[in-house]
């Protein structure tokens, strides 16, 4: 990590107002998150629906105002920019949204869709027809697709159009929110290979949001595990997958279903429910479900341990291969 980070996120919080008349309060969707993404690197965010992954991505892209912290992109502080000054930044940082077909306007042709970024950003002096052909070739679609409409595309093809739109303006960073949701494994492989090829050829940095751990294992250089809007653990993917130090990541990785009907799973089961953001637990916020919970976890928030590029928010980081201390009971 000798290079300067392309994206630097420091202690970012995103709060949403809740409650009605006279009972105004707020909840933290993202509760103090820091990370860096370097050029050419793939950074993955994992966590369940509602853990704050998409909110964090939207905050990075300026679609969601942040309440605390700082976001620096290519050396420029971007969280304080207004809409107008944010626009040129978005040429360098593009976003792929979740639903492949839903994120394409149904009344525009593929040709119009992939060249729309040029029009939005007022890029002049380019032959849009040539650009459309260039982009479609880049993402592996036949050039004669320019006249098609989104409903005439398969899920994988629609995703490729989404990728073409995302790379149209030569961005430095692509944020991909669930780029493979709803695709079968072979099409999923195609989309991920495509993103990876482009990353290598164009020197892109990528931030991928997903809950597919198998995908993360293969494509991400670094991985952060999110829970209730915080990073429980972040580090090199191979380190995190090889020996998770936070109980939540350990449980997630042990739970991952595998395509082998005879596989004997040695799972760490988590008791209780995911707490509501309206009532965050005291102390360590994972303590209500942690099989390794001890007394001070219930009262004191954990200090983040930083070591060799790895961060763990736990009082008692796990040793490799650690098993829960007491015999597990089935979840009540």
């Amino acid at each position: 990590m000798s290079t300067d980070p392309i994206l630097k996120v420091e202690d970012v919080q995103v709060s949403f107002p809740t409650g009605g008349l006279g009972r105004r309060s707020s909840i933290l969707g993202v509760a103090g998150v820091s990370f860096e993404v370097h050029p050419g690197e793939t950074f993955a965010l994992v966590g369940e629906s509602g853990s704050g992954k998409t909110t964090l991505a939207r905050a990075v892209n300026g679609l969601q105002p942040i309440s605390e912290g700082a976001i620096t992109f290519e050396g420029q502080r971007i969280d304080t920019l207004d809409r107008r000054s944010m626009k040129p930044v978005r040429r360098r940082m593009s976003m792929m949204f979740q639903d492949p077909v839903g994120s394409l306007s149904p009344r525009m042709t593929v040709g119009d869709l992939v060249t729309e970024p040029f029009r939005i950003h007022g890029v002049e002096g380019r032959n849009l027809r040539e650009e459309a052909a260039r982009l479609l070739t880049l993402v592996g679609l036949p050039v004669d697709f320019v006249g098609r409409f989104p409903h005439q595309l398969s899920g994988g093809q629609a995703r490729r159009v989404g990728v073409a739109r995302a790379i149209a303006l030569d961005p430095a960073l692509i944020i991909a929110d669930e780029p493979t949701a709803g695709l079968d494994v072979s099409v999923q492989g195609e989309v991920l290979n495509l993103l990876n090829d482009l990353r290598e050829r164009l020197g892109l940095a990528m931030m991928i949001i997903t809950h597919n751990l198998h995908v993360v294992h293969h494509v991400a250089d670094r991985t952060a595990v999110m829970y209730l809007g915080r990073f429980m653990e972040a580090g090199n993917t191979e380190d995190v997958f090889g020996a998770p130090q936070h109980p939540y990541s350990a449980a997630l990785l042990s739970a991952n279903p595998e395509p082998d009907p005879d596989k004997v799973h040695d799972r760490i089961t988590l008791p209780a429910e995911v707490p509501s953001l309206l009532a965050r637990p005291r102390g360590c916020e994972f303590h209500t479900r942690c099989p390794w919970v001890r007394d001070n976890c219930r009262s004191e928030p954990p200090v983040r341990h930083h070591e060799n590029g790895r961060t763990v928010a736990c009082h008692f980081p796990l040793e490799p291969g650690a098993r829960p201390p007491v015999a597990e009971t089935s979840p009540a």
């Binding site: 853990s51 949701a181 751990l213 739970a255 991952n256 279903p257 089961t269």
Partner: peptide, 11 residues
């Protein structure tokens, strides 16, 4: 179970 994380998916 598509919207759930691996621990909840398994449960």
């Amino acid at each position: 179970t598509t919207a759930l994380d691996a621990t909840l998916e398994v449960t």
